[in-house]
Nucleic acid binder design. Structure first.
Lengths: 103, 103
DNA sequence: TTTACATATCGATGTTCTTCGACATATCAT
DNA sequence: ATGATATGTCGAAGAACATCGATATGTAAA
């Protein structure tokens, strides 16, 4: 076994932490699954189909954004979200490779 | 946008939920990163290098096991854990494919 | 500049998760 | 049987998270 329990967690995994936490919540999964290829959705659209209050949706969107899963752009009064698709895929690639090579 | 917020979450994602939750915790990441290729570790070995109490380690191992990330086999007094490596890789593959094709 | 609208933040409350030590169970050796 | 060892489970205490309505901020239209 490795003896690195107290060591720094590999950078690959540190970036993953927030992604894993974000994707572990069912509401946040549902939000992510709303997106079709190329979609940009604003908070109102997402809140409209959600079962949660607007402020709760906002909270979950913040977590998804801070995890890097969504990118947000404010245009006028609205904030448009889109999936950070390629980055998200590369993150899963990295973790797959780490598991393949080091475990 | 899709209109499926209240629908059933795809099976791919339901299986992932527990994996994401399990890997979102730093202690559980550290446990996973202890394993070298082919390693089988018992609870005592893991608890010995951990900063947590034995019962807390047991708790985290249960979560990792129930997520499918670790497999456990009891031999005599000891319980040996190993990474469910191929299954874990296939899970990441599935999610990558889903993101590639449907978002 | 007033009003209306979209979104974010705040503060309170309830819920879930983490952690621990104590105890229970299971297995082996004496 | 008794004692020693490995692990799991329980219950309590505290920490972290989710949720909501109310309020604040920022933007555009009237």
């Amino acid at each position: 076994m490795k003896q690195n329990y107290k060591d720094t967690i590999p950078e690959t995994w540190r970036a993953m932490s927030k992604v894993f936490v974000a994707l572990g919540d069912e509401h946040r999964q549902r939000i992510l699954l709303l997106f079709e290829p190329g979609d940009r959705l604003n908070v109102g659209q997402i809140a409209a189909v959600s079962t949660l209050a607007r402020s709760s949706v906002s909270h979950h969107l913040k977590i998804l954004r801070e995890a890097g899963i969504l990118r947000a752009e404010k245009i006028g009064k609205e904030v448009w979200f889109e999936i950070n698709r390629d980055w998200l895929l590369s993150v899963f690639d990295n973790v797959s490779n780490y598991i393949r090579e080091s475990t």
